[in-house]
Protein backbone atom coordinates (compact mmCIF):
# COMPACT_ATOMS: atom_id res chain seq x y z
CA UNK A 1 0.00 0.00 0.00
CA UNK A 2 2.80 2.35 0.91
CA UNK A 3 4.50 1.50 -2.34
CA UNK A 4 1.37 2.33 -4.28
CA UNK A 5 1.08 5.74 -2.64
CA UNK A 6 4.74 6.40 -3.37
CA UNK A 7 4.38 5.48 -7.03
CA UNK A 8 1.26 7.58 -7.43
CA UNK A 9 2.79 10.61 -5.76
CA UNK A 10 5.98 10.13 -7.77
CA UNK A 11 3.92 10.25 -10.96
CA UNK A 12 2.05 13.42 -10.06
CA UNK A 13 5.17 15.00 -8.59
CA UNK A 14 7.16 14.35 -11.75
CA UNK A 15 4.29 15.71 -13.79
CA UNK A 16 4.50 18.90 -11.75
CA UNK A 17 8.22 19.07 -12.45
CA UNK A 18 7.61 19.04 -16.18
CA UNK A 19 5.85 22.38 -15.80
CA UNK A 20 8.80 23.77 -13.89
CA UNK A 21 11.09 22.69 -16.73
CA UNK A 22 8.70 24.34 -19.12
CA UNK A 23 7.07 21.55 -21.03
CA UNK A 24 3.76 23.24 -21.65
CA UNK A 25 2.81 22.22 -25.15
CA UNK A 26 4.13 18.69 -25.61
CA UNK A 27 2.11 17.07 -22.85
CA UNK A 28 2.93 13.62 -24.21
CA UNK A 29 6.56 14.17 -23.19
CA UNK A 30 5.39 15.13 -19.71
CA UNK A 31 3.34 11.97 -19.42
CA UNK A 32 6.12 9.72 -20.66
CA UNK A 33 8.72 11.39 -18.45
CA UNK A 34 6.51 11.07 -15.38
CA UNK A 35 5.75 7.47 -16.27
CA UNK A 36 9.46 6.71 -16.53
CA UNK A 37 10.04 8.33 -13.14
CA UNK A 38 7.31 6.17 -11.62
CA UNK A 39 8.70 3.09 -13.31
CA UNK A 40 12.13 3.90 -11.90
CA UNK A 41 10.73 3.99 -8.38
CA UNK A 42 8.72 0.82 -9.02
CA UNK A 43 11.85 -1.02 -10.13
CA UNK A 44 13.64 0.31 -7.06
CA UNK A 45 10.91 -1.18 -4.86
CA UNK A 46 10.82 -4.48 -6.77
CA UNK A 47 14.53 -5.00 -6.15
CA UNK A 48 14.15 -4.16 -2.46
CA UNK A 49 15.01 -7.77 -1.63
CA UNK A 50 18.57 -7.10 -2.78
CA UNK A 51 18.87 -4.96 0.34
CA UNK A 52 21.49 -2.77 -1.29
CA UNK A 53 20.44 0.80 -2.05
CA UNK A 54 23.32 1.38 -4.43
CA UNK A 55 22.47 -1.60 -6.58
CA UNK A 56 18.75 -0.78 -6.43
CA UNK A 57 19.37 2.81 -7.54
CA UNK A 58 21.68 1.64 -10.26
CA UNK A 59 19.22 -0.86 -11.73
CA UNK A 60 16.31 1.56 -11.50
CA UNK A 61 18.22 4.38 -13.16
CA UNK A 62 19.48 2.00 -15.84
CA UNK A 63 15.87 1.15 -16.73
CA UNK A 64 14.88 4.82 -16.75
CA UNK A 65 17.76 5.98 -18.91
CA UNK A 66 17.58 3.05 -21.35
CA UNK A 67 13.87 3.66 -21.87
CA UNK A 68 14.56 7.39 -22.19
CA UNK A 69 16.98 6.71 -25.00
CA UNK A 70 14.44 4.46 -26.71
CA UNK A 71 11.73 7.10 -26.33
CA UNK A 72 14.11 9.68 -27.71
CA UNK A 73 14.53 7.57 -30.84
CA UNK A 74 10.78 6.99 -31.13
CA UNK A 75 9.75 10.64 -30.77
CA UNK A 76 12.88 12.13 -32.36
CA UNK A 77 13.41 14.29 -29.30
CA UNK A 78 16.50 14.81 -27.14
CA UNK A 79 16.85 12.05 -24.54
CA UNK A 80 17.66 14.64 -21.86
CA UNK A 81 13.99 15.62 -21.71
CA UNK A 82 13.01 12.20 -20.41
CA UNK A 83 16.06 11.59 -18.23
CA UNK A 84 15.75 14.92 -16.42
CA UNK A 85 12.14 14.21 -15.47
CA UNK A 86 12.63 10.51 -14.84
CA UNK A 87 15.57 10.79 -12.45
CA UNK A 88 13.75 12.81 -9.80
CA UNK A 89 12.24 10.06 -7.61
CA UNK A 90 15.67 8.42 -7.41
CA UNK A 91 17.59 11.55 -6.42
CA UNK A 92 18.78 11.08 -2.81
CA UNK A 93 16.87 14.00 -1.31
CA UNK A 94 16.42 12.35 2.07
CA UNK A 95 20.13 11.52 2.07
CA UNK A 96 20.95 15.23 1.94
CA UNK A 97 18.50 15.87 4.77
CA UNK A 98 19.82 13.18 7.11
CA UNK A 99 23.42 14.07 6.37
CA UNK A 100 22.71 17.63 7.45
CA UNK A 101 20.62 16.59 10.42
CA UNK A 102 23.38 14.40 11.84
CA UNK A 103 26.00 17.05 11.12
CA UNK A 104 23.98 19.61 13.07
CA UNK A 105 23.36 17.24 15.95
CA UNK A 106 27.04 16.40 16.11
CA UNK A 107 26.63 12.67 15.48
CA UNK A 108 29.75 12.20 13.46
CA UNK A 109 29.48 8.46 12.80
CA UNK A 110 25.94 8.71 11.46
CA UNK A 111 26.89 11.84 9.53
CA UNK A 112 29.73 10.06 7.75
CA UNK A 113 27.56 7.05 7.05
CA UNK A 114 24.69 9.00 5.48
CA UNK A 115 27.10 11.27 3.63
CA UNK A 116 28.81 8.30 2.05
CA UNK A 117 25.53 6.61 1.16
CA UNK A 118 24.24 9.84 -0.46
CA UNK A 119 27.44 10.09 -2.44
CA UNK A 120 27.23 6.40 -3.36
CA UNK A 121 23.67 6.72 -4.64
CA UNK A 122 24.64 9.72 -6.76
CA UNK A 123 27.54 7.81 -8.24
CA UNK A 124 25.29 4.82 -8.97
CA UNK A 125 22.84 7.07 -10.80
CA UNK A 126 25.66 8.69 -12.74
CA UNK A 127 27.11 5.34 -13.71
CA UNK A 128 23.72 4.12 -14.96
CA UNK A 129 23.27 7.18 -17.18
CA UNK A 130 26.85 6.80 -18.45
CA UNK A 131 26.39 3.15 -19.37
CA UNK A 132 23.05 3.49 -21.13
CA UNK A 133 24.05 6.57 -23.12
CA UNK A 134 27.30 4.95 -24.20
CA UNK A 135 25.49 1.78 -25.19
CA UNK A 136 23.18 3.74 -27.45
CA UNK A 137 26.05 5.70 -28.92
CA UNK A 138 27.82 2.47 -29.83
CA UNK A 139 24.59 0.99 -31.18
CA UNK A 140 24.12 4.02 -33.40
CA UNK A 141 27.65 3.72 -34.77
CA UNK A 142 27.22 0.03 -35.52
CA UNK A 143 23.84 0.55 -37.13
CA UNK A 144 24.99 3.37 -39.40
CA UNK A 145 28.38 1.65 -39.94
CA UNK A 146 29.98 4.97 -39.06
CA UNK A 147 33.18 3.59 -37.58
CA UNK A 148 36.06 5.82 -36.57
CA UNK A 149 38.95 5.47 -38.99
CA UNK A 150 41.97 4.30 -37.01
CA UNK A 151 44.39 5.32 -39.82
Amino acid sequence: MEGFIQCLSAFIGCFGFTFIFRIQKNIRFSLIGSFLGTLGWFVYLVFASLDNIFLQSFIAMLCVSLLSEIMARVFKAPATIFIIIGCFPLVPGSGIYYTMLYAVQGMNDLFMESFLSTLGISISLALAILISSTAFQVYKRIKTKNYIDMG
Binding site: I5, Q6, S9, A10, I12, G13, C14, F15, G16, F17, T18, F19, I20, R22, Q24, F88, P89, G93, S94
Partner: peptide, 22 residues
Protein backbone atom coordinates in the same frame (compact mmCIF):
# COMPACT_ATOMS: atom_id res chain seq x y z
CA UNK B 1 5.04 33.83 -23.94
CA UNK B 2 5.50 31.56 -20.96
CA UNK B 3 2.52 30.53 -18.92
CA UNK B 4 3.83 31.43 -15.46
CA UNK B 5 0.71 30.15 -13.76
CA UNK B 6 1.51 26.61 -14.92
CA UNK B 7 5.00 26.91 -13.46
CA UNK B 8 3.50 28.03 -10.15
CA UNK B 9 1.15 25.04 -10.23
CA UNK B 10 4.18 22.87 -10.93
CA UNK B 11 5.97 24.17 -7.82
CA UNK B 12 2.94 23.66 -5.59
CA UNK B 13 1.99 20.23 -6.93
CA UNK B 14 5.45 18.72 -6.96
CA UNK B 15 6.28 20.03 -3.50
CA UNK B 16 3.11 18.49 -2.07
CA UNK B 17 3.47 15.24 -3.97
CA UNK B 18 7.11 14.66 -3.17
CA UNK B 19 6.24 15.29 0.45
CA UNK B 20 3.73 12.44 0.19
CA UNK B 21 6.40 10.43 -1.60
CA UNK B 22 8.68 10.74 1.43
Amino acid sequence: KLNYRLILIGYVVSAAMFCAFF
